[in-house]
Amino acid sequence: MTQLFFEQLLNGLQLGMFLFLVSAGLTLVFGFMNIINLAHGSLFMIGAYAVAVLTNLTGSFFVGLILSFPVVAAFALVIELLIIRPLYHRDHLDQVLATFGLILFFNEGVSIVFGRTPLFLNVPEALSGAIQITETFSYPLYRITIIAVGLMVAAILWFIIVKTRTGMRIRAGTTNPEMIRALGVNIQALNTTIFVVGALFAGLAGGLSGPLTSVEVGMGENLLILSFVCIVIGGIGSIRGALLGALTVGLVDTLGRAFLPDLLGQFLDPATANGIGAALSSMSVYLLMIIVLIFKPTGLFPVARAA
């Protein structure tokens, strides 16, 4: 039991890291640019397909992963210049609809090029084994790598945002968009950079997820909506909130699915417990979000926004 719990804990942590990689870009783009970008999930998918294709071409997952960065960046750049830029001063409805249009385009585009059949990727040789954590308990190395990558990205982001001049500007721009304009910072270039960097994180998450799940059309959408939950829980615009939200959602979702039916089985008959357990665990993260919002309507770490 404890072993199973420990394994699920790590699984939850790993889902949390994926969610963080997607949420980070989402929350930065919203916090700094005031843009709500549904197509962020498409960038996740593009990353996954890019890695799958490039891995098959080069024969190496790592080369594929590295080479996917410029591909994702190029897509992000085009999206930013063509679609997002005209949306800066539009209302959220326009942003939602236009980026929804992007999702339709990318989903159908990908299925035209690659068909409906999912692509599969193997875990790279070097990361294929498992790590023996205790004598009786081992955990796949690849999944541990993902957790490590997530933590690394979190650390790098923390460093950039807290310690560098650019980070200072981002923070200033998030709390007070007018001031940063008044300071004469080249806001356009900064916007584009943030968008592309956020896209790279999403693409990285997509690429890393390839060997764990199937690479298929619409793969980013569930993660996108869960990421919305993460940043809503954490407080939109806050990286710290995104990390906390992502870890919470990852753990609650994974642990809920694993243990809720059993837990309810203690009180209810097995059939009912399974039914309710399945229903509850699939809704658990949303319930969590509702509870958070009842007490804190702007999330756990709201970013104070000057009017």
Partner: peptide
């Protein structure tokens, strides 16, 4: 934007609720 995301999430929640109605 919170309202947009909350309504989206409630929609998903009901979606998963219906999925779980074996």
């Amino acid at each position: 934007v919170y309202f947009i995301m909350i309504t989206l999430s409630f929609g998903q929640m009901l979606f998963f609720l219906f999925v779980s109605l074996e």
